[in-house]
């Protein structure tokens, strides 16, 4: 008897997670609002130093807003799995742990990408940066790459810390140091888009983020089975 392949199983998990997120829209909105709040707080903290400072810090603040919002959504993604041992149910069907990982990581990427249409315009408004159409596209592409780089280890660590007493502290503590390369590269790339890119360095930073994505998606996909299965 053959089983559905990795891709089909992953898509089934992805579909389920998106349906659950759609049912849970109110929470999604709350996470987006939290992201906006972070942007606002940073602009208040730096705002009195002048417009120039705001424009310079815009890229960094935007990435930090993404990072902080991500912890909220990543943890939620495993709370539903834990509620009635549903994740265990999936494993027993049997579903390959890797396809559960890729399905959930894709759903988390989707969720983080969904923050962009709100957070990017808000940034241009309160940080007073102006973006042309190409720059909007560049930011969108970078955002997708950064979200993917955040979602893969994020999914793994959310699964790893679920059911632990101090998940809310441990997950960011483990995740954020890991994300430093993605953070640095994304901040740099956002800065180049916002302030102009005279030396044409943007593409090499983009390649760097994509390289991180590939490494994280492969490594975390392999390790996920150990996180969810004791007997593995």
């Amino acid at each position: 008897m053959s089983r559905p392949g990795l891709a089909r199983q992953s898509l089934a998990i992805l579909g389920k997670d998106l349906a659950l997120e759609w049912r849970n829209r109110a929470r999604v909105v709350a996470v987006v609002l939290f992201g906006v709040l972070v942007l606002l707080l940073f602009s208040l903290a730096f705002g009195d130093k002048g417009t120039q400072v705001l424009q310079v810090t815009a890229g960094g603040c935007l990435v930090i807003a993404l990072f902080l919002s991500s912890t909220l959504s990543l943890q939620e993604s495993f709370r539903t799995e834990d509620h009635d041992d549903a994740l265990e149910g999936l494993l027993l069907l049997p579903t390959e742990p890797a396809s559960i990982f890729y399905g959930k990581a894709l759903a988390n990427t989707f969720f983080l990408v969904a923050l962009a249409p709100v957070l990017i315009p808000v940034t241009t408004l309160i940080y007073q940066v102006s973006l042309g159409p190409t720059q909007v596209l560049q930011i969108a592409g970078l955002w997708l790459a950064a979200a993917a780089g955040l979602a893969a280890p994020g999914t793994l660590y959310a699964g790893l810390t679920t059911r632990l007493k101090s998940q809310d502290v441990l997950m960011p503590l483990l995740l954020f140091p890991l994300e430093v390369p993605v953070l640095l590269a994304t901040v740099k790339a956002f800065g180049l888009v916002f302030d102009g890119d005279p030396m044409g360095q943007l593409s090499s930073w983009t390649q760097l983020i994509v390289a991180f994505d590939v490494i994280y998606w492969c490594l975390c996909g392999v390790l996920f089975r150990f996180v969810v299965e004791e007997a593995a």
């Binding site: 053959s2 089909r8 389920k16 349906a19 009635d84 149910g89 579903t95």
Partner: peptide, 25 residues
């Protein structure tokens, strides 16, 4: 068949079955 139901709060009965079925042949 555990004493837990393996169900997702938020999915309907049909959606739950659809998920399980799509993971099987």
């Amino acid at each position: 068949v555990s004493h837990r139901g393996f169900l997702y709060p938020g999915l309907t009965a049909l959606e739950t079955l659809r998920l399980w079925s799509s993971l099987l042949t």
